[in-house]
């Protein structure tokens, strides 16, 4: 069986106030064909906020890769990209 794409959404204070609260709705916005191929979970502070000066919250990670200034669109694009990369 195909391995699912793992999405972690940071629910730490900073990410939450910077728009991460919206990201919790990601599942509702996923296109049908993606829904079964993605696992979404919350996460305690991923640590990106204090380790990376140039990137801005809210943060999420897709298969362990950091997504900064995350929005639902940005996350969906990243998920699609991961799926394509997985094919090559």
């Amino acid at each position: 069986m195909e391995k699912k794409i793992k999405v972690k959404i940071c629910i730490g204070t900073l990410c939450y106030v910077m728009g991460g609260s919206e990201l919790q709705l990601l599942e509702e916005h996923l296109p049908e064909e993606l829904k079964k191929r993605v696992d979404i979970e919350g996460s305690i502070c991923l640590g990106f906020c204090n380790s990376n000066e140039d990137e801005k919250p809210p943060f999420a990670s897709v298969n362990g890769k950091c997504v900064s200034r995350a929005s639902i669109t940005k996350l969906i694009n990243q998920i699609k990209k991961e799926l394509e990369d997985g094919l090559h």
Partner: peptide, 29 residues
């Protein structure tokens, strides 16, 4: 720690779970 996702409970980040702790929440908000 198991982190739950529950959008918009009165504008607060969701709670999480850990064995041996009754309630695990976000901090300052």
């Amino acid at each position: 720690i198991q982190v739950g996702l529950s959008p918009n409970i009165l504008g607060l980040p969701p709670e999480s779970k850990m064995e041996g702790v009754d309630l695990l929440t976000e901090g300052i908000l």
